[in-house]
Design a protein around this nucleic acid. Structure first.
Length: 513
RNA sequence: GGGCCCGUAGCUCAGCUAGGUUGAGCGAUCGGCUCUUAACCGAUAGGCCGUGGGUUCGAAUCCCACCGGGCCCGCCA
């Protein structure tokens, strides 16, 4: 059974209404690893729905969290924003979003939307402003000794002296402060580091709970019954463990069913990190990987396994495998061991599963086609001409279009050099032997007569090479050299057939002189 | 100091939850399609299942220890 179904069954066992929660603190570019959380949550959500459960999926944008530091991508003037909540910091783009938090979360929400993940989105700062945390904040402050006790028991560390489980936001400097001087509902009195003294109303979003407590509070306020989270939270003494205690001992609820998951790593370079400059954002990943393929490539692994994300050649294998599973899904032939793959395929569909096998153009071939042809229609023409395809259904065009776009972005940003080529605008510099020229002469003559089809051109290469007494290998290298200035390339006959005949003849003629 | 994951073919991984002759894909090699070249097909090779113990009639699978690799917590979120 696929892991999403296993988890779904576990969660359903507890009965009642269910809420799967996921979210992030939108402090910067959201990398591909964060997609895993959304995909994981969505997979369980879908699995539970399939089983008839009453379940909802939400996404919490923690934009009341403070900016932790000025990241390298931020201009110097953001130095003063450090410590202020993300929802109140100006957009670091060209005023394209209403806040810092929105600027980073919106593209991400768009990205998961493309994968068919459409949770109900909450912005944490709004929950605070609406006073939804007020009751629990009051409880937590009144029970602060118990809170301190739990933190100590779980983490093994003493809380600082004069501990208050709440951080008021100073209206003067906008920073959160831990210098609390007293509490009487609904006001937290404080003396900020900037010198300002005041009181914060916990009903109006003027004070924030510390993260570990806030997490558990959200479980209670929203009724969360299941939540995936990165392994960082899952460690012993980690935040999930404190969350469990707060839930049971303070809030009187059962903590949500946990789904700890491993991170996605950048192949060969360790974990992705903003500071190293190696960042593949969720949006990047979707630009080079068709949405269902990306989903599938996450769903095929158990959450506890780490995934190496290879934005290079690895992408091609992933797409190939996806296509293979897709073919199995529609054509049958799956064995027991493939069942989980089929299920992963099913869950990975952004919309609903197609009624018949979609058009398959081998992805590697598409990589060639995209480089041969100018536009989308040109690619369609080549496909038709080379008899791979008769007519394209609208859905097939959609899939093909998405893939063509992905291939283009991939070629532009991630593809290794040896798969790239382009038709040389002019004859590359090269020295030819007499034998080469004899071959070209023969080839020129042959091509002038032959029907302009890939097969025929391809055959002509062999015939001419034989006739001229040249090794076919040499002949191919010569021709690739003339047209793309490389020693190898896409299947030559088909490649040339996509070019204009006169252009091809002229180029060969030019090479002979 | 603590926690998690991984170690099976050159590479990526299945198989481990219910012990019973290790599998697949890619790659490689060879071959086929009148044609070695990045669309196809076929065949072949390739593995003391990290190491050492234990349980068992029998262990890749369960238990223990160790080695190696990756990551996380012990600041904050």
């Amino acid at each position: 059974m696929h892991w999403a179904d296993v988890i779904a069954n576990e969660v359903i066992k507890k009965g009642g209404k269910h809420l799967i929660s996921t979210g992030i603190s939108p402090s910067g570019f959201i990398h591909v690893g964060s997609l895993r959380e959304a995909i994981t949550a969505n997979a369980v959500f879908k699995a539970m729905k399939d089983k008839g459960a009453d379940v909802e999926l939400i996404y919490l944008v923690d934009d009341y969290d403070p900016l932790r530091k000025r990241y390298p991508f931020l201009p110097e003037c953001y130095e003063k924003e450090v410590g202020r909540p993300l929802c109140q910091i100006p957009c670091p783009g060209d005023h394209c979003h209403e806040s810092y938090g929105h600027h980073f979360i919106q593209p991400f929400l768009d990205a998961i939307g493309e994968m068919g993940i459409k949770p109900h989105v909450y912005f944490t700062h709004e929950l605070y402003e609406q006073g939804r945390f007020a009751e629990l904040t009051d409880l937590v402050i009144r029970e602060k000794d118990k809170v301190a006790q739990i933190l100590k028991e779980v983490t093994g560390r003493d809380v600082p002296p004069n501990f208050w489980p709440v951080s008021p936001q100073c209206p003067e400097c906008g920073h959160f402060t831990d210098k609390v001087t007293g509490y009487e509902y609904p006001y937290v009195h404080f003396k900020c580091g900037c010198g300002h003294e005041g009181k914060a109303d916990i009903r109006k979003g003027e004070a924030k709970l510390p993260w570990r407590i806030e997490w558990a509070a959200k479980w209670k306020i929203l009724g969360v019954t299941c939540e995936p989270f990165g392994k960082d939270h899952a460690a012993a003494g980690g935040s999930y463990e404190t969350g469990e205690r707060f839930s049971r001992d303070l809030f009187g609820i059962e903590p949500p069913f946990p789904i700890p998951y491993e991170f996605i790593q950048f192949k060969g370079k360790g974990q992705m990190h903003k500071s190293t400059g190696i960042v593949v954002t969720g949006t990047d990943a979707l630009m080079i990987t068709p949405a269902p393929v990306l989903s599938f490539s996450v769903l095929r692994y158990n959450p506890e396994r780490h995934i190496d994300y290879d934005p290079g050649l690895g992408i091609l294998d992933v797409v190939d495998e996806y296509d293979q599973v897709e073919a199995m899904y529609f054509n049958g032939g799956a064995e027991d061991k493939d069942k989980d793959f089929l299920r992963a395929y099913e869950i990975a569909q952004p919309k609903c599963v197609r009624t018949k096998l979609p058009l398959h153009v081998p992805y590697r071939h598409l990589v060639s086609l995209v480089q041969i042809s100018d536009g989308f229609e040109g690619i369609v023409d080549i496909l038709k001409r080379t008899e791979n395809v008769a007519e394209l259904l609208p859905e097939d065009r959609e899939v093909l279009q998405e893939r063509v776009n992905c291939v283009k972005h991939w070629l532009a940003n991630f593809a290794p050099e040896d798969v790239k080529f382009s038709v040389a605008a002019e004859l590359p510099q090269m020295t030819l032997s007499d034998q080469d020229k004899v071959l070209l002469r023969a080839f020129h003559d042959a091509l002038a007569k032959v029907e302009w089809k890939g097969d025929n051109i391809h055959n002509a290469v062999y015939e001419c090479a034989k006739g001229a007494g040249v090794q076919t290998k040499v002949a191919f290298q010569l021709l690739y050299g003339i047209f793309i200035n490389k020693k190898q390339g896409p299947r030559l006959g088909y490649f040339l057939s996509t070019l204009d005949r006169n252009f091809v003849l002229d180029r060969i003629a030019a090479a002979m002189n």
